[in-house]
Design a protein around this nucleic acid. Sequence first.
DNA 1: TACGGTACTAACTTGTTTGTAAGAATTGCG
DNA 2: CGCAATTCTTACAAACAAGTTAGTACCGTA
Lengths: 115, 115
Amino acid sequence: MPEFYYRKKLYYNPVEFAMDRIGGTWKMPILWRLKDRVMRYGELKKTMPRISDKMLTSQLKELEEEGFIKRKVYPVVPPKVEYSITRRGRKAVRIVNTIREYGMELMKEFGVSSG
Amino acid sequence: MPEFYYRKKLYYNPVEFAMDRIGGTWKMPILWRLKDRVMRYGELKKTMPRISDKMLTSQLKELEEEGFIKRKVYPVVPPKVEYSITRRGRKAVRIVNTIREYGMELMKEFGVSSG
DNA sequence: TACGGTACTAACTTGTTTGTAAGAATTGCG
DNA sequence: CGCAATTCTTACAAACAAGTTAGTACCGTA
């Protein structure tokens, strides 16, 4: 096993490392939405009706801290904040897409209908 | 959002569906090891020193139930059980590989050294 | 003074995943 | 008998991720 540490956490392999950056329930949906357009906080929220403010905020923050998205604040009232994808985020989206297509294939095999 | 149910669980998208089948800490490492050879329970365990019996057993069972691997029991004492990959598992391994390569790329970007 | 609108923030609770520790089944062998 | 060998099983605990609820800041406008 490769086994290494990053920010005090022990990882067993590169897959785990990648999934810790872009995995979880909400990160891929967020990246997916930002893949070809800039979006505001409220806009993102509208297209993800089940996400809570807490999760949206925290996941956006983590994605930004690790360079997958960019946050732009306009100094106005009420606040206006725009999120956009970065070069690194765009690479991640390719992986998201691969997994997404694979997921759809699996769903077919398992007889699951979406929508 | 697509949104659908599978076994009483609500999924928001195909990515989540895929990751529920082959995600988690141990499933990909297991599939990866079985990708080109049959392995016994104890052998798998030896190459994954940090996995517990409980996790190894449960993850093997889930992978088998969903058709990613095959379990063959030899009626001998002490027990002998062999695990091998299926056609479906082989497809999954391609995804594992994609994520793995992406993970290594990310690790480089983040300045993480493996091993 | 109160309210609307937007993007958060914090405290608390629940749910899920993973880990720990111990034990069980089987039978040949010393 | 007592133990080794191998593959699980169970009960319990810890850790982590996600959800719930409520509240904050700002300033223009009614």
